[in-house]
Design a protein around this nucleic acid. Sequence first.
DNA 1: CGCCGGTTTGAAGAATTTCAAAGGGAGTGG
DNA 2: CCACTCCCTTTGAAATTCTTCAAACCGGCG
Lengths: 253, 253
Amino acid sequence: MDHRFSGRHAPLLRRLSIVGTLSEEQIAAISALPLTVRKVNAGQEIVRQGDRPTQSCLIIDGLACRFKIIGQGARQIFSYHIAGDIPDLQSMYIERMDHSLSTLSAAMVGYIPHRALEHLMQTQPAVARMLWRDALIDGAIFREWMCNIGRRSALARISHLLCELVTRYRAVGLADLTKENSVIIPLPMTQAELGDAQGLSIVHVSRVIKQLKTLGLISISRRTLTVLDWAQLQQVGDFDTDYLHLRDEPQLS
Amino acid sequence: MDHRFSGRHAPLLRRLSIVGTLSEEQIAAISALPLTVRKVNAGQEIVRQGDRPTQSCLIIDGLACRFKIIGQGARQIFSYHIAGDIPDLQSMYIERMDHSLSTLSAAMVGYIPHRALEHLMQTQPAVARMLWRDALIDGAIFREWMCNIGRRSALARISHLLCELVTRYRAVGLADLTKENSVIIPLPMTQAELGDAQGLSIVHVSRVIKQLKTLGLISISRRTLTVLDWAQLQQVGDFDTDYLHLRDEPQLS
DNA sequence: CGCCGGTTTGAAGAATTTCAAAGGGAGTGG
DNA sequence: CCACTCCCTTTGAAATTCTTCAAACCGGCG
């Protein structure tokens, strides 16, 4: 983990440094991005479908998700976003939002004007490349979720999702370890929100999670996930980190 | 429809002109892209998961799809690609393919070296912007498919997919009309391939298509789809063109 | 004419949803 | 500090959607 980063831009710097190596100049340029920080409660819509934003959101702390409400009120969640993510970077290039962005926990959100981002991308092409790479990885995650929802069992889906979250939290240094080397990450979303992400009903999510607990693979308490058997959880979830395109694959013992 | 376009680059030019307006200079620059054209049979893998391509593929004619094989042989198709699409543009920025690209019909495929694309994007920033926009729309389609697979009934899923294909074929001028103003598009894929796209079994796809025929919404013959009741098909499929971000929404009577 | 891949059909089975109700747990107000 | 409340989770039972299996059918092509 890089300790050069501090302040409100730190999560973004950490995030980008898993995509590529940042020079001092680039770090300075990113740190100079104007950032209007706001504290947001859980369950607030930050950007709405149909909006034409002139700024993008950096998640500084907490959990957010992108989603769309379809037909008779069903919700599909497309992605979860943790500290360092810019979930709506694409609004720079696609004016009209075709989905919404919402917090799932209390969160710190920083707003960056598109103008500033454009200037950054013009003056620091290497950073632009990182941001684009990031957007493409975003798409890779969508594809993997399609595999989940379309072709995996409910048990595999939830396991896979938990594996992804663990891997992403670890990548940005936000996962903790127990004495026994079990990984701990925040899991602030409700089971309804897990279901909306993986195309499952609340009831079934509950049953599947119970099964994972019974199998001794995980435990959950106080909105916190502990992975008790990482190897097994990966296997049940048919999980392979490839699609996350991490530069240095973090290895778990 | 723009008639300035001819030759093997024409499908790409038509495709980009639905994203933005092309100047003569841009048309010239795109037409100058080196293009190695190959005729490919149906069902051939063009790019494989794990590859590190140095060129990207332009679909000049025919149908292709991106997909991944998971777990015990199940296949998830992520997207269909018609003439003018560059399905693996992203391999310029993400070295290692996390999925495969395959033809679904006999096709003409043009290979463009990444180097040439990079040069184009550097010298024609507006074209670069269009290509990026295109990549982001790609992601928007993934998201809509997630809604389909995760939250819509089988009948709605198939209807929605057919609506999308009709809309995309129309956008690039590849849809025909009957005397009665019904839209006709190619539908070369098998029902197994439709199922793999929408997370359904062959059997169920067959039943759903039968139902759509019985309802009088569509007819299919000789790998060709005729939409008999566009309004109704859209409604059944909960279809809204928003997510395709077309510049000029093509209106159907 | 016969083959072959793809489609259709029927029947049985599995996974998941829906409905309904009870059970917890964390924060709030008395 | 207790009791209440609200939201979330859990459980059971019935219903539904979709899958699987198996077999027949169909249409284009050699």
